Amino acid sequence: MTLDLGTQTGWALLSRDGSIASGSESFKPGRFEGGGMRYLRFKRWLTEVKQCAGGIDTVFMEEVRRHAGVDAAHAYGGFLATLTAWCEHHNIPYQGVPVGTIKKHATGKGNASKDEMIASVQFRGYAPVDDNEADALALLHWALEHGGAR
């Protein structure tokens, strides 16, 4: 499974039969929710995906080193902490992959734009709903080509 973590999380999953499913899931805080509820919903969603898939062997996530703002950095940190704790609890290995590595693999440029990332996965035959799903698909192909995804 590959993830582009954030309030709008992109995901891609290679199933045991070789098919690929992907999408984009919103974890926007509800109007009357406490600050931690988005992370509980994220954890529940991970568990549902794991159950529907019949298990998850490995998780790869975008490793973000720089954010546009403080709120984005805090949200990413919360999702990352929730994901890594969930993986540890379920004995699922996980690995962060730098954003520039994913972009360079997908487009040939380490600083590719969102539109270029979307175009790169469209070229592979996908129709991502947004740049988050496109990033997760690009990361899945990086993992497949580097022997990490099975």
Results as ranks from 00 to 15, higher is better:
residue 37 M to D: 09
residue 79 F to D: 04
residue 65 R to A: 07
residue 23 G to F: 07
residue 106 A to Q: 02
residue 133 E to G: 06
residue 62 E to M: 11
residue 1 M to W: 02
residue 99 V to W: 00
residue 145 E to R: 06
residue 43 K to M: 13
residue 4 D to M: 08
residue 122 Q to D: 00
residue 76 Y to V: 02
residue 87 C to K: 04
residue 14 L to R: 13
residue 16 R to Q: 15
residue 98 P to I: 01
residue 117 M to N: 01
residue 103 K to V: 00
residue 94 Y to W: 13
residue 45 W to S: 06
residue 32 F to Q: 14
residue 34 G to C: 06
residue 10 G to F: 00
residue 61 M to F: 05
residue 61 M to Y: 11
residue 32 F to R: 15
residue 65 R to I: 07
residue 118 I to N: 01
residue 40 L to A: 15
residue 111 N to L: 01
residue 31 R to K: 13
residue 134 A to P: 11
residue 25 E to P: 02
residue 38 R to W: 00
residue 83 L to K: 05
residue 104 K to Q: 12
residue 51 Q to C: 11
residue 38 R to T: 08
residue 102 I to H: 00
residue 143 A to H: 03
residue 68 A to F: 02
residue 133 E to C: 03
residue 146 H to W: 01
residue 12 A to N: 07
residue 133 E to M: 04
residue 89 H to Q: 13
residue 75 A to W: 01
residue 122 Q to E: 15
residue 148 G to M: 09
residue 86 W to Y: 08
residue 19 S to C: 09
residue 62 E to V: 04
residue 5 L to N: 14
residue 79 F to H: 04
residue 54 G to P: 02
residue 128 P to K: 04
residue 11 W to Y: 13
residue 136 A to L: 04
residue 52 C to V: 06
residue 20 I to E: 01
residue 125 G to F: 00
residue 76 Y to D: 11
residue 95 Q to N: 05
residue 1 M to A: 14
residue 67 H to G: 07
residue 144 L to R: 14
residue 130 D to I: 04
residue 120 S to Q: 08
residue 45 W to F: 13
residue 14 L to S: 02
residue 8 Q to P: 06
residue 138 A to F: 04
residue 55 G to D: 09
residue 46 L to W: 05
residue 29 P to R: 15
residue 39 Y to S: 10
residue 143 A to Y: 03
residue 71 D to W: 05
residue 141 H to G: 08
residue 37 M to C: 03
residue 19 S to H: 12
residue 67 H to V: 14
residue 92 I to S: 05
residue 100 G to M: 12
residue 90 H to E: 15
residue 89 H to Y: 12
residue 17 D to G: 10
residue 138 A to H: 04
residue 1 M to S: 12
residue 108 G to V: 04
residue 89 H to W: 11
residue 88 E to W: 06
residue 36 G to S: 15
residue 111 N to Q: 10
residue 72 A to D: 09
residue 62 E to L: 09
residue 59 V to Q: 06
residue 5 L to W: 11
residue 107 T to H: 01
residue 82 T to C: 14
residue 61 M to G: 09
residue 50 K to S: 11
residue 35 G to T: 08
residue 4 D to Y: 11
residue 84 T to Q: 09
residue 60 F to L: 15
residue 103 K to G: 02
residue 13 L to E: 07
residue 18 G to Y: 05
residue 134 A to V: 02
residue 30 G to W: 03
residue 6 G to D: 14
residue 77 G to M: 08
residue 73 A to R: 12
residue 47 T to G: 13
residue 102 I to K: 00
residue 94 Y to L: 02
residue 26 S to T: 12
residue 136 A to V: 02
residue 102 I to G: 00
residue 19 S to I: 01
residue 61 M to H: 14
residue 131 D to G: 08
residue 28 K to L: 15
residue 29 P to H: 12
residue 139 L to Q: 10
residue 15 S to Q: 13
residue 47 T to D: 15
residue 10 G to K: 03
residue 9 T to C: 15
residue 58 T to Y: 08
residue 88 E to Q: 10
residue 116 E to L: 10
residue 90 H to V: 04
residue 91 N to L: 10
residue 146 H to T: 14
residue 145 E to K: 13
residue 21 A to W: 13
residue 103 K to S: 01
residue 111 N to E: 07
residue 64 V to R: 05
residue 21 A to E: 10
residue 48 E to Q: 06
residue 109 K to Q: 09
residue 61 M to Q: 07
residue 75 A to F: 03
residue 52 C to K: 14
residue 11 W to F: 12
residue 130 D to T: 08
residue 6 G to Q: 11
residue 28 K to H: 12
residue 141 H to V: 05
residue 141 H to I: 03
residue 25 E to F: 05
